[in-house]
Simulated assay, not measured.
Amino acid sequence: MVMIHPGLRPYIEPYRVLGCMRMWQPHDDSCRCTSTLGRHRMNVLAVDVGGTKTLLGIVTPAGDIVSQSEHPTRIGIDDIERVSALTVEELASATEPVGAVCVGFPEYVSAEGLLTSREVLTWAEQPARVIHRAIAARGLEQLPVRIDSDVRLGALGEATFGVGVDRSSFIYVSLGTGLSSAFVVSGAPWRGSRGEAIALGEWPGPEGTTLERYASGTAITQRYEHLTGVARTARDIVTASATDPVARGILETAGSALGRACADIVSLIDPAVVIIGGGLGSAPTLLSEAAHRAYISATARRDDSPPWVVAGNGARSGLLGAAAAALPLCC
């Protein structure tokens, strides 16, 4: 008997493969398994396209990353063809059979697996179509391909392989180059009617701007350059904060704004826990410390407020979530 991880159960049912070019069900006769154990016991290819970097990894059903590669994400030009090429290269070089692919993008994604925004990336054609075409051009066997929002996959990664396991509900906040969130109930991210229940970054922020333009990694670099005239990366600003009062002030005000916003989310939807993730959010910095303090202060009127927990998978939550979303597609 195949043991199904609790976080995957909401996905184990016949459904249309999101972003795939055909109708497909987990045990459809048209699926040609290349393993005697069936594809549900095969590895999957997970791809996490972020605002700064793209991660690709071969992941086992247990959530172990067999291999991983990292590439810069190209902003301002259509990067879908390159992501597709990287995906095919990973498939071609895999040492064991791969049963399915899932790719997360930092955009709004519909229930059908279609990108519906160009907030971060430039694209002209839907990724699933490009990936299938690239697979065919390389002469490889077609596989189920799923497309979803990177933050929903990050949330699923924590629900399946991280600190969200067995939680009745949680809000997952991803702070990195950008800022977004996803609400998870019974192990499944809630996508909303349009697939847009991820836009924490669009909430009003201090100084008449949005929360993303005030507290994200991109915002931190822009605010620092505006105040000092010096261009530094978010990583450099975090490092400099020990001795640089400008860097320290930016990180602390960004964290305070994020913590208060998370307290507002708790007042609205009452999750069992708040999970803070993403490369910047899960790192021990002045920003994350300030966010935690602000959250505790804003929720102090209740003794049983949801705990604030750092993502167990850190910056790899999205990659593992993509794997979790791909696994049920393996017949």
Results as ranks from 00 to 15, higher is better:
residue 151 V to Q: 08
residue 253 T to C: 02
residue 222 Q to M: 11
residue 222 Q to C: 05
residue 150 D to G: 08
residue 221 T to W: 00
residue 218 T to L: 11
residue 2 V to E: 07
residue 175 L to Y: 04
residue 169 S to F: 06
residue 156 L to F: 08
residue 50 G to V: 01
residue 166 D to G: 05
residue 26 P to C: 08
residue 300 A to C: 10
residue 167 R to L: 15
residue 276 I to W: 05
residue 179 L to V: 06
residue 284 P to H: 11
residue 269 I to H: 05
residue 158 E to I: 08
residue 156 L to P: 01
residue 323 A to S: 09
residue 83 V to A: 02
residue 92 A to W: 00
residue 204 P to A: 15
residue 216 S to G: 11
residue 281 G to K: 10
residue 263 A to N: 10
residue 3 M to C: 03
residue 87 T to W: 01
residue 225 E to S: 13
residue 31 C to K: 01
residue 50 G to R: 01
residue 83 V to L: 02
residue 212 E to V: 14
residue 96 E to C: 05
residue 264 D to I: 10
residue 199 A to V: 09
residue 313 N to L: 15
residue 101 V to E: 02
residue 229 G to D: 04
residue 232 R to Y: 03
residue 161 F to M: 01
residue 211 L to V: 08
residue 6 P to A: 14
residue 178 G to R: 06
residue 292 H to C: 12
residue 132 H to N: 15
residue 90 E to D: 01
residue 256 S to Y: 00
residue 12 I to P: 02
residue 208 G to D: 14
residue 157 G to K: 05
residue 118 R to D: 15
residue 43 N to K: 08
residue 36 T to H: 09
residue 214 Y to H: 14
residue 143 L to Y: 03
residue 256 S to F: 00
residue 167 R to A: 13
residue 305 S to G: 14
residue 39 R to K: 04
residue 151 V to I: 13
residue 320 L to A: 09
residue 141 E to R: 12
residue 49 V to A: 03
residue 299 T to Q: 06
residue 200 L to D: 04
residue 145 V to Y: 03
residue 269 I to Q: 08
residue 292 H to G: 01
residue 315 A to P: 00
residue 314 G to K: 10
residue 204 P to K: 15
residue 191 R to I: 12
residue 46 A to K: 00
residue 130 V to D: 11
residue 91 L to I: 02
residue 217 G to E: 06
residue 261 A to R: 10
residue 243 T to L: 02
residue 233 T to F: 02
residue 287 L to G: 01
residue 271 P to Q: 10
residue 313 N to I: 04
residue 218 T to R: 15
residue 67 S to K: 00
residue 1 M to W: 01
residue 229 G to F: 06
residue 150 D to I: 07
residue 155 A to K: 05
residue 32 R to V: 15
residue 320 L to G: 04
residue 91 L to E: 02
residue 188 A to K: 14
residue 219 A to N: 09
residue 300 A to F: 10
residue 175 L to G: 02
residue 226 H to Y: 11
residue 308 W to F: 13
residue 260 R to S: 12
residue 50 G to C: 04
residue 265 I to V: 15
residue 276 I to K: 04
residue 80 I to F: 06
residue 99 G to C: 07
residue 9 R to T: 12
residue 186 S to K: 11
residue 40 H to Q: 13
residue 5 H to K: 12
residue 232 R to G: 03
residue 199 A to S: 10
residue 222 Q to I: 06
residue 208 G to H: 13
residue 136 A to T: 13
residue 28 D to Q: 06
residue 164 G to E: 02
residue 55 L to K: 00
residue 219 A to S: 10
residue 164 G to K: 03
residue 146 R to N: 05
residue 325 A to T: 03
residue 60 T to E: 11
residue 16 R to S: 04
residue 166 D to E: 14
residue 133 R to N: 14
residue 218 T to Y: 12
residue 281 G to D: 09
residue 296 I to T: 13
residue 60 T to D: 09
